[in-house]
């Protein structure tokens, strides 16, 4: 694989301490993208933006976005409105604070980016080393391509990583959940469930779970490009237990047998 291109350059700014960095997408989606073709002549179709009421084409510079205020009103946003909302451009990634990592639950994390050194490797690796092994993450704010971002600065495998965060009002949680009596599990059920968890406990090994659908799709593409066909996949079934306890017991036995085998 050839080296990836940086999507952006900036400076991590922790007060006086600064480290110039390049930013790289940490995720490379492998989704299969199809193109829409005209069946008759296999020409890739063109997309046109049209008025719904009369199908009249609307050129790019006449397209606007409307912001819905309430049930039946919306406001058209003109280019000057969008310009007024644009943040001041800056190359600084401002670190606001470092907090215990446990304060950021999984729901906050959005898109991950690797940060790499930009020229000054010492400033970069010194920061990575200082942050490594600490139980804290940095909360950062920056402006990139006319948009504001909030992210979490962390270290993974010795390299700095910035993951953009969802915003406060997007992250939901629930409290006050105390189930009624009938829905409260019994002590023996809890015990059995705990034993069952123990039998299928392990490490997180993401490479174990390949996207088989994607694999089959690529195999199909491969086969079709050679003019072949591929066989459809096999299917499986499972029995259903009569009660919660019975199900837990049967699963436990099955899991243990599997372990011994």
């Amino acid at each position: 694989m050839s080296a990836a291109r940086a999507i952006w350059k900036g400076h991590l700014a922790l007060g006086e301490y600064r480290a110039p960095v390049k930013m790289y997408a940490a995720v490379e989606p492998r989704t299969v993208h199809f193109r829409l073709l005209h069946a008759e002549d296999l020409a890739p179709v063109e997309q046109h933006i049209v008025r719904k009421e009369d199908g009249r084409e609307v050129p790019k510079d006449e397209q606007r976005k409307a912001f819905a205020l309430s049930g039946d009103t919306a406001i058209i946003l003109q280019p000057e409105d969008l310009q007024a909302l644009e943040p001041e451009p800056s190359r600084d990634i401002e670190l606001c604070r470092f907090v215990p990592r446990t304060l950021l639950g999984d729901q906050w994390y959005d898109r991950p980016y690797w940060l790499g050194p930009d020229e000054d490797e010492a400033a970069y690796f010194a920061l990575a080393e200082a942050l490594e092994g600490q139980e804290t993450v940095g909360i950062a704010r920056w402006v990139m391509r006319k948009k504001r971002y909030v992210g979490a600065l962390d270290v993974l495998d010795g390299y700095l990583m910035m993951t953009t965060l969802r915003r406060a009002d997007q992250v939901l949680s629930f409290s006050g959940i105390e189930p009624g009596k009938a829905a409260t599990p019994e002590a023996n059920e809890l015990q059995l469930a705990q034993q069952l968890v123990a039998t299928i406990e392990g490490d997180f090994e993401p490479q174990r779970w390949r996207d088989e659908h994607r694999d089959r799709l690529y195999a199909l593409i491969e086969a079709k490009s050679r003019g072949e066909q591929i066989a459809p996949p096999a299917r499986k079934r499972k029995p259903k237990p009569a009660s919660l306890v019975e199900g837990l017991r049967a699963s436990l036995t099955a899991a243990r047998e599997q372990r011994l085998a």
Binding site: V45, H48, I49, V50, K52, G55, R64, A66, A68, Q107
Partner: peptide, 28 residues
């Protein structure tokens, strides 16, 4: 869904506010 989208209620319209849609056409 456990996260709410950020930009809520944005619609594509023309300069006068007529709603827009997408259409596929053959390039030929």
């Amino acid at each position: 869904s456990a996260s709410r989208p950020r930009a809520k209620g944005m619609r594509m319209v023309d300069k006068e506010g007529h709603p827009l849609g997408r259409q596929y056409r053959c390039p030929r």
